[in-house]
Amino acid sequence: MANSRYDVVVDVDQEGDLGHTDLQEDLEFHSSNFDNNTSSRNKIQPDTTSGFLPGPASSTPRSSQKHYLWSLSFYAQAFDVDTNEVLRRCQAAIYPRANFLDVLEGNPDLYGPVWIATTVVVILFLTGTISQYLAYNGKDHFSYNFKLLSGGAGLIYGYTALVPVGLWGTLKWFGSESANLLECVSLYGYSNLIWIPVALISWSNIPILNFVFVALGFAASAFFLLRNLYPILSATDKQTSKILLIVVVALHAGLAIAIKVLFFASGSPLSKDKPKDGGDDKKGDMVRMLFGI
């Protein structure tokens, strides 16, 4: 090995670096406009003439757009809720921990009130039929009484629609600025939710038990209404607000009495098989229908 010859001569500096290998000083990085050119070339501009956008009016906020009475959008805004939101509002109506108008967050709906009222009507018809069947004393074959269905629809739909409208008109008459028609209807609509469990447990042939259930339903729903209507009614003068509170409670008590008498009493005026007691005492008949005896 000592006599071997080498054909390659390598120059090694004192630091032991084999040649100049530091490439960082020779490399320079330049900014490229490749991405900018690509994005500008591939960017899709909105087509304002395609019909998917409302054109120049699209810059107007949705809440400030006008909805006319004869347009579908006027009624669609009252149903602008999803199932989760309706369930959340139903929970807030059953467990009223906060003001229900705050739960609505300025977006009252009619979707929940319509379906709640329809459910109450159907359940009242079914449980009212069961109640009449248990109190049935006739010899003929028992038949369904569809007067219960029409009576329940007229009672629940009429109360849920007419009373809020009347209350809103009265508040407007006395100069209240906080009254909103859709909020009043939504409030009364969700207050009907309590009548679903009441109707499900009030079909028995124990009159006093049915009376207690209906009374509890009235107390819970009346508390719900008064708690949420009081800030609105108090916007009027003191005497007017007291009168309106009394009227609200009296009308709601009338609804509870009508439900008890028409659906869960053996002497219901809608019953085909009325008990024959042979008496002409009007007050006695009313007491018997109210308490189901």
Rank of each mutant, 00 (worst) to 15 (best):
N107C: 06
F52R: 05
L18D: 10
V8G: 10
S58Y: 07
D7G: 08
G217D: 08
Q45K: 11
K139F: 15
H20K: 15
V261G: 02
L200C: 06
L162D: 09
R97G: 14
A253F: 12
F223V: 12
K272Q: 11
C90A: 05
G217N: 08
V247H: 07
G279I: 13
V214Q: 07
C184Q: 15
F224S: 07
S32Q: 00
S50R: 00
V122W: 05
S71F: 04
D47N: 02
L226H: 15
N37Q: 13
N33P: 06
N84G: 13
F125R: 03
D140P: 08
I259F: 06
D17C: 06
L101D: 09
A199V: 02
N137P: 11
K242I: 05
G128T: 00
S40V: 07
P61K: 04
A76S: 02
C90F: 06
A256T: 05
I94S: 00
R97P: 09
T60V: 06
L72M: 14
A153V: 01
N145W: 01
I243K: 15
W168Y: 11
W115Q: 04
I208E: 10
H141N: 13
S271N: 05
V121L: 04
W195E: 01
P275V: 04
L124I: 00
A78I: 03
V120A: 02
L148I: 00
K147Q: 13
Q45D: 10
S221W: 00
Y6G: 15
S143I: 05
K147C: 10
K66W: 11
L69W: 13
